[in-house]
């Protein structure tokens, strides 16, 4: 999982990231100084994606701007959520691009696992 985060973190775009499975943090590159942001992201994105799922909607991307930061949550598959922290004025398209890379990597890994059988 940490390899995935290495793929996502990119100077000037994504400062740090984490992967959540429900309330559990599977991997994180959030430094100590952003632990509050990580907590807020975990609670907020779980809540908002769970609400969307309850309403049978396919919303899978959320952005929360707080202070001078932006927290972005991407529903990868199942209940896996990729969280990215970036500067509020950073390019949101680039953040998306980084997240897509993670999504593609997950899919590739999954296919490789399947091909073993």
């Amino acid at each position: 999982m940490i390899e995935l985060l290495n793929l996502v973190d990119h100077p000037g775009v994504v400062e740090c990231s984490s992967i959540l499975k429900g309330k559990e943090v599977l991997a994180s590159s959030f430094p100590e100084q952003y632990k509050n942001h990580a907590t807020i992201a975990k609670q907020s994105f779980n809540y908002v994606f769970a609400t969307a799922a309850k309403m049978k909607s396919k919303h899978d991307e959320a952005h929360l701007e707080i202070g001078d930061k932006r927290l972005s949550g991407f529903l990868l598959k199942g209940d896996l959520i990729l969280v990215c922290l970036s500067a509020k004025d950073s390019n949101i398209q680039q953040v998306r691009k980084q997240a897509r890379q993670a999504s593609a990597k997950l899919l590739k890994d999954e296919l490789e696992e399947l091909s073993k059988f």
Binding site: V48, A52, S57, D60, E61, A62, I66
Partner: peptide, 14 residues
């Protein structure tokens, strides 16, 4: 942590 400016939710075909 600062002012909550916005919360945005998007998705394909949503």
């Amino acid at each position: 942590l600062g002012h909550i400016e916005d919360l945005i939710l998007c998705g394909k075909d949503q």
